[in-house]
Amino acid sequence: MSEIEIKLPSDPKFLKIIRGGISHISEICGFSSEESNAVTSAVDEAASNIIKHTYNGAKNKLIIVNFRILEDRLEIVLRDFGEKVDPETIKSRDLNEIRPGGLGVHLIKSTMDVVNYDNSFEVGNQLTMAKYLPGKKEK
């Protein structure tokens, strides 16, 4: 297993660092350009959601992102220490409804094979996402 960890403040100006990291790691994992773009988008949306909803726009809070290249999958874990989010309330929006906002969760769920929200920590939340490596997806 290879693991890379990035710790960064919850300031939107640092999102590009996360995107740069995941884009490069996706390439290393052998994902196509299209898959790599989609994974990058999913991780960026997840981090943006932490900034917007968990930290309510505060720029000086901590976000920890772990990228793990496992035997069969690329796993990304985002940890925050903000307001607890009820996983039941995190839903993709109805795409027939044309309105600004609410697309982030849809972009995450439509790209990643595993999306698991965990708010059982004493403080904060953890989102674990994974995408199976090319040719490794479970039948």
Binding site: E45, R99, L103
Partner: peptide
């Protein structure tokens, strides 16, 4: 090169 959902939302808002 890249647009996230906030960019898309901005365009949807302008379209409306």
């Amino acid at each position: 090169k890249y647009m996230d959902s906030s960019g898309v939302a901005t365009l949807v808002e302008a379209l409306q």
